[in-house]
């Protein structure tokens, strides 16, 4: 089983977690930039964080044969702090880096005018840099936040197939299903989704444009949640091909739109897929 965790905050995890993820089948991850428990106070904190996502984390991951990519952005919560907003000036430079496969997480937290501005600015950056956008839906007042997010995206004119709307639930998936955007679900203890409920959503809405992630971070979370969901799908009667679609091919197809995915040769299921998923087409035809 090959697994791709399309949203995990490895900065907050130990190297032993990488080892366990590898053993569970995880071969690739995307780490989106987000908030820490402690608010940052200026753009240099972000620069150090971005450098870590581009340097230290890929190194740690590679030790266990896991390919680490990242998505970079000013997160919605800290978009409300004027001291941090300057990071938007340095972000375009970072968005050109090889390992950056999306702009994210962007979206809403408390749904403020400052968050409106940061979201619109960064959606424009995604379009400018030909990157997909990873959009976080808020924990508080999620339905309203999701609706507003979709409206902003429509207004910006970004192609829906380049947008992943994340942290969806049974209550918000329907609204996104018809938009053409990709649908992300975080399997996270006590908040967000669990494997059992995820299986029900997949039964109802199918496996197309569906992504499942652990969103593991510094909270009570589980870096093996992708594997647990895969096992729950199989137990519920989904085929291995459907599991592979949701937990490998879908994230590869979504982030592959960046042209910068660089996946290990060993993860290809066939020579043909190797040419497509591996080191040629998606990396710009080298």
């Amino acid at each position: 089983m090959r697994l791709f965790d399309p949203h995990i905050h490895m900065t907050s995890r130990t190297t032993a977690d990488y080892e366990a993820m590898r053993a569970a089948g995880v071969r690739a991850v995307v780490e989106p930039a987000f908030w820490l428990g402690q608010p940052r106070t200026g753009p240099t904190s972000f620069a150090d964080y971005f450098d870590s996502l581009l340097g230290w984390e890929p190194f740690r991951a590679a030790q266990f044969g896991i390919q680490h990519h990242c998505a970079l952005a000013l997160n919605p919560k800290e978009a409300n702090d004027p001291r941090c907003a300057e990071v938007l000036d340095v972000l375009p430079r970072y968005l050109e880096k090889d390992a950056v496969v999306a702009v994210g997480e962007i979206g809403y937290d408390a749904i403020t005018p400052q968050e409106d501005a940061a979201l619109a600015t960064q959606v424009a950056m995604a379009m400018e840099h030909a990157l997909p956008a990873l959009v976080h839906t808020p924990h508080r007042d999620k339905a309203i936040g999701t609706r507003r997010t979709l409206a902003v995206l429509r207004e910006a004119g970004i192609a829906p197939e380049t947008v992943l709307i994340d942290h969806l639930t049974e209550l918000t998936v329907a609204e996104v299903a018809d938009t053409g955007c990709w649908m992300g679900f975080s399997i996270y203890p006590d908040t967000k989704m669990d494997p059992h409920r995820m299986v029900h959503v997949l039964k109802r809405y199918g496996t197309d444009r569906m992504l499942v992630n652990s969103a593991a971070d510094w909270g009570r979370s589980d870096p093996l949640a992708t594997r647990r969901t895969a096992d729950a799908m199989l137990a519920a009667g989904f085929t291995t091909d459907q599991v592979d679609q949701v937990l490998w091919r879908n994230p590869v197809a979504f982030y592959g739109q960046s042209g910068r995915l660089d996946l290990p040769e060993e993860t290809a299921n066939s020579p043909q897929e190797s040419a497509y998923l591996g080191n040629s087409v998606l990396r710009g035809g080298e």
Binding site: R140, D141, K142, A143, I144, T169, E170, L171, D194, R197
Partner: peptide, 15 residues
């Protein structure tokens, strides 16, 4: 309204 949405979300998740 916001609290009601929170309650609905918790219940729909069986929590």
């Amino acid at each position: 309204r916001m609290a009601a949405a929170y309650v609905r979300e918790r219940r729909s998740a069986g929590r």
